[in-house]
Design a protein around this nucleic acid. Structure first.
Lengths: 134, 134, 134, 134
DNA sequence: GTGGTCTAGACCACA
DNA sequence: GTGGTCTAGACCACG
């Protein structure tokens, strides 16, 4: 299920990108899956079709999804790998946040601890690989 | 020293807030200090007085500085604590970001390394990293 | 209906905040309502868009309205409660004022009468009393 | 003892007026008393002499104090009465505050209760009249 | 179209 | 001189 918060500081089109990538990584949309159509998504999420188009366009540019004229978009075979690379490009975002906290006197260990806590707890990481031991 | 990067994606008024809070945390502007006046800052930084006013207004709202019409703005007695606490309250933000990256397959060490890099380098370098020149 | 008195000693942006919060409390703008856009309000009230923005910004900070770039500002679900609580937190202000007047020999009944006058008359009359035309 | 808060939203010269009137009403400065000189007050309170002058000027205008060229200002014989009248002229201030609270949904009884509480408790109301039963 | 930021220049009361 | 408010007009990314 995809949820959009129109009042989030994060733009809707970015939220949609994140959500779709998340569904792919979680295995809900495994490679080869046909994604919902523009109109379907815009209706179910109550957002502007142009916004969905913007998200699909960016996902296409990243090679995460493959548009097929007339029949929608499909999840690329190497989507998980491309998603990981895209995620690493978000490091500057994290760097900026940490810099903000550092200059305000937050100790390094506080942040490292928070990061380790995230990676420490085994959350729902049902990778596609885990379920394709065929 | 306060520096503004006009090409940073971060709004000027936020950069100014960051700089002033950093000077306070570093002890360059200890509690009780009289800050530069709106007009003085606007001239030395070559930005509009209204922009400085916006920053000062936000700092006032946060209880970091105390304005006194006719005599100037002073650093609040408990400014450093307020700044640090406000920064620590942003930890969930960082946690969410890390969770997103973990889910997408970014290894823990990549993130820890980025954090250490932020804390390892000197302030001037941080200033550079804050600006993407996107 | 929102009215601005250019000759009131109260700043325009505060008058606008008052008016909007009142409309929310009165139920004219129930939670979820889409507020007039910045430009629309600035035109109908003949005030500068920046001034409206300042009011909207403050209401956003108070959690009374939720802005969504590209679609407008909406009244928050818990707006009425937030507004009332914020107002009640100003009681000490009133207490101090009354203590001052008591100390100077102003009889209790004079004050009670003034309060009853405020609550006795209709909203329109309150609008008039708010402006001193000093 | 007179205390000035330079960070109060209330202007310093008004605080000084209030404080002096309070000292008079409390009997610390009974009618006929020679008030501290401009310079003395400006030094002990660490405020600008012009500000003290402004306060003294307003008190003179109200007839609360009587300037005597070359020898300072004296508390007027009918000072308490004039102070009471001046206090009543502050009713619009109270009216505005109540109007603000009313339009935000604060019930009338909440305010009346607060007022009665102020007048109910017997605070330090050592009127001059009480100590001149000579 | 929307909210948000920035500049330029003006005016006010206060110290 | 100070902080604070307001106007006018411009630009940006988002929907």
């Amino acid at each position: 299920m995809i949820l959009i918060d129109r009042f989030s500081p994060k733009p809707v089109f970015e939220q949609l990108i994140d959500s779709i990538e998340q569904q792919i990584v979680l295995g809900v949309y495994p490679p080869g899956t046909l994604l919902p159509s523009l109109r379907e998504l815009s209706v179910t999420l109550s957002i502007n079709p142009n916004t969905v188009q913007k998200s699909y366009g960016e996902l296409t540019r990243r090679g995460v999804i493959l548009p097929s004229v007339g029949s929608g978009c499909y999840v690329a075979p190497d989507a998980p790998e491309r998603i990981r690379k895209a995620a690493e490009s978000r490091l500057p975002e994290l760097t900026r946040l940490c810099a903000d906290m550092k200059l305000r006197g937050v100790p390094e260990e506080t942040i490292l601890e928070a990061v380790r806590a995230v990676y420490g707890c085994e959350t729902v990481t049902i990778q596609k690989e885990e379920s394709d031991h065929a």
